[in-house]
Design a protein around this nucleic acid. Structure first.
Length: 580
RNA sequence: GGCCUCGUAGCUCAGCAGGAUAGAGCGACCGCCUCCUAAGCGGUAGGCCACAGGUUCGAAUCCUGUCGAGGCCGCCA
């Protein structure tokens, strides 16, 4: 079903035969050779470096091995032409039948063409967003949200069992700050004049919360000391913030499977458990850390603390887990949370963090390695920042000023589909420009519309054919006759479609959804080119007045393109458009 | 000072589980609508893949170092 891995199997088979015959030495059967689409069209449709790799191990001449392999491969029905080129590449041209068969497979398997079992049902915990419950999500969060969600779908499509998880930081000092901020808004709602402290969350979104609190409690807490209202206001505010955040996620079509609260981790004594576990491993000790090398460190004081020996697992320094007053540092609940994740029996943990959290990668990796005896696959994907551009200017955003562009503003302006697509157009670890005006353009300058337009054209053709009374159902299209779709332009498009399973596999292995987006743009490009070719070359037009058989064959190709584009978009969480 | 990520065409970026002559879009220039959506297509120009070493038959891709950009380095989370 994947033409590349099929071909690879055949080549591996031939290598095996050559070993049996004594032409090749034993031990070369597991050589990691590749079968790929060559960049250069003159190098055939498919090529392999098998002879080069095998020669490297067998210490013989690659071209000799190549010709031995070519001799064997000559008997294969699917192969039309073989040649040896360069240092020993073997280039294949397959028979048109072979390519046509791929279309039949696509039409038969539909959305499952490209689905695979490489995950083998592995259970993956995918933690993403996990924004502090202190306000609405901004565009930076949106990128992490979209990346995580698309990655989740991609993994599911590749046979993993994914849990999308949000970790709610509702146990730290910042939610107390939140509570104090809403208290101010509460007082304001009551008619008092308020002044913010330097740490206060000043965003307007808390005004409503203040009003709600007034409605709920009246003036009960107006003149009360902090200890009277702090806990109450905190719980209230967190609840409201999570409603807000869930709305935001809903705006951008992200649904979490579960929310894990820091508070529940603390309350269920997971911290003690985790620390006890680490203590038994001899990784907890009392000690004094070196002063930090950062610039502002005048007020640093050497004190004895409880430390985790994370250096044993590759961290740069050991990390404090308890303050000198005996309370936990922020790191302790994180340890407990990951202890919890490890103990839930996943096969793999993936964390999606903003790149500003890059400093935690080593220590968390150390924690997971320690807690799982190195048996847990643990990956942290860092998401670079989003530059919002409007009127050709980068909007300056600062946490202090609280002028982040909100996720909901972006989605309101350009829609969820466009936002998602644009957010996925870059690799996770490079900065991304989000140009408000550009993403709304309806032209080829805008990749979203470019891809959608390709899909719309597919639908348009099928509709027209249907209007002419043709049966354009997939089973009918599958029966196209082999006399058609033989021109180079046809084959070229089919070859592009045939890459789909491999693209999915690579995107999955690298945990990089953007590869799907780039592939979709390529498919769209090849399809648009094919379409335009029909204007110059009558035989390439899909709808042929006189020739129903030929039309159906063309529609099979078009429909297959549509299936793949639509499925690619769906995995990215973008709705394919049927007309524009 | 240390750690992480990045450095590819004028601009924005792909490619990096090593492979053949390094790709795309934008911008520039030249073409294509009697004909399935020109919301599109074709073509031309444009590169010491930051730099220097190393590994290899072969390096944009792997390793080391240098330079440059950003991020992180608090008993904040």
């Amino acid at each position: 079903m994947d033409i590349f891995s099929d071909t690879k199997l055949i080549v591996a088979d031939k290598i095996g035969e050559l070993i049996k015959e004594g032409t090749l030495p034993k031990g070369v059967e597991d050589c990691p050779f590749s079968v790929e689409r060559p960049k250069n069209n003159e190098h055939g449709e498919i090529s392999t470096n098998a002879a080069l790799i095998v020669a490297g191990k067998a210490k013989t001449n690659p071209r000799q091995i190549a010709s031995a392999l070519v001799e064997k491969l000559g008997n294969e029905d699917n192969i039309g032409k073989l040649s040896i080129a360069g240092p020993g590449f073997i280039n294949f041209v397959l028979t048109p039948d072979t390519w046509q068969e791929i279309l039949r497979v696509i039409l038969k398997k539909q959305d499952d063409y490209g689905r695979s079992d490489i995950g083998r049902g592995s259970r993956v915990n995918l933690e993403f967003v996990s924004a502090n419950p202190t306000g609405p999500l901004h565009v930076g969060h949106a990128r992490g949200a979209v990346y995580g969600d698309a990655l989740g779908s991609l993994l599911e499509y590749s046979g993993y069992e994914v849990t999308r998880e949000y970790y709610v930081n509702d146990g730290g000092a910042q939610v107390d700050t939140l509570a104090r901020s809403v208290y101010l808004r509460y007082l304001e709602a009551h008619g008092n004049k308020i002044t913010f402290g330097p740490d206060s969350y000043k965003g307007d979104y808390l005004v409503t919360i203040g009003l709600k609190l007034l409605e709920e409690y009246g003036d009960k807490y107006v003149d009360q000391p902090e200890q009277a209202w702090l806990a109450v206001f905190r719980e209230f505010a967190i609840k409201e913030m999570m409603i807000l955040i869930k709305e935001d996620l809903h705006f951008i079509n992200v649904t979490m499977d579960q929310y894990v609260h820091e508070k529940s981790i603390v309350e269920t004594a997971r911290i003690d458990e985790a620390i006890k576990h680490l203590t038994e491993m001899g990784l907890i000790y009392k000690g004094v850390l070196e002063p930090p090398k950062a610039k502002r460190s005048e007020d640093w004081e050497a004190r004895e603390q409880l430390l985790l020996k994370s250096t044993e697992y590759g961290d740069d320094v050991d990390r404090p887990i308890q303050k000198s007053d005996g309370s936990w540092t922020y790191f302790a609940p994180d340890i407990a949370y990951h202890y919890d994740k490890v103990s839930r029996g996943y096969d793999e943990l993936i964390n999606v963090f903003g790149s500003d959290h890059g400093g935690y990668v080593k220590r968390l990796t150390a924690v997971v390695d320690a807690l799982s005896n190195g048996n847990m696959s643990f990956v942290i994907k860092l998401i670079q920042q989003v530059n919002v551009i409007s009127q050709d200017e980068v909007l300056k955003m600062s946490k202090r000023a609280g002028n982040f562009v909100l996720l909901r503003d972006a989605v309101m302006a350009v829609g969820s589909d466009v936002t998602r697509f644009v957010m996925l157009m870059r690799k996770n670890d490079v900065p991304l420009d989000f140009n408000f005006e550009k993403v709304q353009e309806q032209s080829k300058d805008n990749p979203v519309f470019y891809v959608q337009y390709a899909h719309a054209r597919v639908c348009s053709l099928l509709n027209r054919a249907h209007e002419r009374g043709l049966d354009v159902s997939d089973p009918a299209l599958e029966d196209f006759t082999r006399e058609h779709l033989l021109e180079p332009e046809h084959i070229y498009l089919i070859r592009k479609l045939a890459e789909w399973p491999r693209i999915v596999e690579q995107a999955t292995m690298h945990r990089e959804p953007h590869r799907i987006i780039f592939y979709l743009m390529e498919v769209a490009s090849v399809f648009h080119g094919f379409w335009s070719m029909g204007k110059e070359k009558e035989s390439l037009r899909i709808l042929q007045e006189e020739d129903t058989e030929k039309t159906l064959a063309g529609l099979a190709l078009v429909r297959s393109t549509g299936i793949i584009v639509a499925q690619g978009l769906r995995i990215m969480g973008v709705k394919p458009l049927t007309e524009m």
